[in-house]
Simulated assay, not measured.
Amino acid sequence: MAVEDTLKPVVTEEANPNSTEKPIDRYHEEGDDAEEGEIVGGEGDGDVDESGKSAVPESHQLEHSWTFWFDNPSVKSKQTTWGSSLRSVFTFSTVEEFWSLYNNMRHPSKLAGGADFYCFKHNIEPKWEDPICANGGKWTMTFPKEKSDKCWLYTLLALIGEQFDHGDEICGAVVNIRGKQERISIWTKNASNEAAQVSIGKQWKEFLDYNNSIGFIIHEDAMKLDRNAKSAYTA
């Protein structure tokens, strides 16, 4: 399913009001000047349907359902078991539901330090222990403080729009808010599938026009070595 075909009818410029380059500009077609809510008729004068029936907006189904998760830093500091403060927020399965949620939630630059905000395929928990994530790993990009909003949106659009050649390998994405930086990571299923992982890393960089090198850390290595874990692949 092409993201251009599904997102165009419902996007608004509210998605990223602080950016001079609107994330959804490329989804608008030249000459499409109809205002929101305007009913556009066909060729010729035509007759107006006076039946009184209300038009039902078309719903654009996504290939997968996705769930937003939030790890609250104020609760996380008091937890006894890792992941016990992680909570699912909402599951969406249409383009309209995504924009309704995104336009009414805090973007990364407005989240408190220590917060983790996830968007994962439905029925996959964003935990190393989840059976689907257990043998995988993650690609990570870093950003200065309050500079990840646009890239977070572009990452979400690439995920839900199935823009990756190896999209079946993807579990979801997370943005981590830390003291001096923000990090966005894409989690995948099978770390041993080098070709698929490298393809995902390279495509992600292209989608975001990200020029720095990024590394892929295997979850198992991260669990054993923590911050000393080395990148298995780079892109």
Rank of each mutant, 00 (worst) to 15 (best):
51 S>K: 04
112 A>L: 12
100 S>V: 06
7 L>S: 03
114 G>V: 07
5 D>G: 14
76 K>H: 10
94 T>S: 13
194 E>Q: 15
107 H>Q: 14
140 T>I: 14
21 E>V: 11
128 W>P: 02
35 E>P: 00
29 E>W: 06
231 S>F: 08
87 R>C: 09
43 E>T: 09
227 R>M: 07
33 D>W: 10
4 E>P: 00
45 D>K: 12
101 L>Q: 03
144 P>E: 10
78 K>Q: 15
224 K>N: 11
21 E>G: 05
176 N>P: 05
98 F>R: 03
75 V>C: 02
128 W>S: 04
30 E>H: 04
123 N>D: 15
53 K>M: 08
203 Q>N: 03
37 G>V: 06
67 T>G: 05
178 R>I: 08
144 P>N: 11
137 G>W: 05
76 K>I: 03
19 S>L: 07
156 L>C: 13
214 I>Q: 01
199 S>D: 13
199 S>L: 05
9 P>G: 06
71 D>G: 00
209 D>M: 04
167 G>E: 07
9 P>D: 06
14 E>I: 04
85 S>M: 04
91 T>D: 04
96 E>T: 05
183 R>H: 11
133 C>V: 07
54 S>F: 07
22 K>P: 01
96 E>L: 04
217 I>C: 07
1 M>D: 07
37 G>E: 08
154 Y>W: 11
98 F>K: 01
48 V>E: 14
42 G>V: 02
172 G>Q: 05
204 W>L: 11
209 D>V: 06
101 L>V: 10
186 I>C: 03
68 F>W: 09
178 R>A: 09
51 S>I: 02
93 S>V: 00
2 A>I: 09
206 E>C: 08
40 V>E: 10
182 E>M: 09
8 K>V: 01
142 T>K: 14
197 Q>L: 04
235 A>W: 01
38 E>F: 05
65 S>I: 00
234 T>P: 00
70 F>C: 02
93 S>W: 01
230 K>F: 04
15 A>P: 01
210 Y>D: 05
108 P>I: 05
149 D>T: 07
183 R>K: 15
58 E>I: 09
111 L>R: 12
13 E>L: 11
53 K>T: 12
70 F>Y: 15
159 L>R: 00
159 L>H: 02
21 E>A: 12
48 V>H: 10
77 S>C: 11
118 Y>Q: 07
119 C>V: 14
36 E>A: 13
12 T>H: 08
53 K>Q: 12
143 F>R: 04
190 N>A: 10
94 T>K: 05
79 Q>K: 11
60 H>V: 03
95 V>Y: 00
180 K>Y: 05
77 S>R: 15
42 G>S: 11
188 T>D: 03
118 Y>I: 08
136 G>I: 06
186 I>P: 00
205 K>C: 13
183 R>E: 13
36 E>F: 10
216 F>C: 04
17 P>Y: 05
143 F>M: 06
182 E>F: 02
75 V>H: 09
6 T>S: 09
115 A>D: 06
51 S>D: 14
32 D>H: 09
103 N>W: 00
97 E>S: 10
216 F>D: 02
124 I>F: 10
